[in-house]
Amino acid sequence: MNTPPTDPLALGAADISRIIEMAWEDRSSFDAIKAQFGLNESAVIALMRRQMLPSSFRMWRKRVAGRRSKHAALSGVKLPRHRAAHTRQ
Rank of each mutant, 00 (worst) to 15 (best):
A84H: 13
R27W: 10
R88E: 14
E25V: 10
V77M: 10
A35M: 11
R49V: 14
P8D: 14
K62I: 06
S55Y: 11
D31G: 05
F30N: 02
L9K: 12
P5F: 04
V44C: 02
P54H: 02
R83F: 10
Q51C: 11
A13I: 06
G76S: 09
Q89M: 08
R88W: 14
D7G: 09
I33V: 07
I33H: 01
A10F: 01
L53C: 12
L47R: 13
G38C: 08
A23R: 13
E21V: 07
A65I: 07
A35I: 05
K78H: 11
F57A: 15
L11D: 06
F37K: 04
G66W: 03
D31N: 07
F30D: 00
R27T: 07
R81C: 10
P8L: 15
R61G: 06
M1P: 06
A72I: 07
A10N: 09
V44A: 02
W24Y: 14
D15Q: 07
S17Y: 04
A73M: 05
E25M: 08
Q89N: 14
G76I: 00
D26E: 09
L53F: 11
H71L: 11
R27L: 06
A13H: 11
T87C: 15
E21Y: 14
R63H: 02
S28I: 08
A32P: 00
F37C: 05
D31S: 05
V77T: 12
L9S: 04
L47A: 10
A84E: 08
L74S: 05
R61S: 09
I45P: 05
N2W: 06
Q51L: 11
N2C: 08
R81T: 03
I20D: 02
L79F: 14
L39A: 00
Q89T: 12
Q36D: 06
R81N: 03
E25L: 12
A32E: 11
R68G: 09
P4D: 02
Q89G: 13
R81P: 04
A14K: 02
T87S: 12
P54D: 06
M52H: 09
P4R: 08
R49D: 14
A13R: 13
A14G: 04
I20N: 00
V64L: 01
D15V: 03
A43V: 00
N2H: 05
N40Y: 00
W24R: 15
A13C: 07
S42P: 02
R83C: 04
G38N: 01
R83I: 03
K70G: 06
V44W: 04
R18P: 04
R58L: 14
R18G: 02
N2V: 08
L47I: 11
R58N: 14
M52R: 09
F30H: 00
M48K: 03
R88Q: 11
E21G: 07
P80Y: 12
T87Y: 15
R81L: 14
D31V: 07
D26P: 01
G38W: 05
P4A: 02
A43Y: 01
L53R: 07
S42H: 04
W24L: 06
A84D: 12
A35V: 04
R67V: 02
L47D: 15
K70R: 12
K78L: 15
E21P: 01
L9R: 10
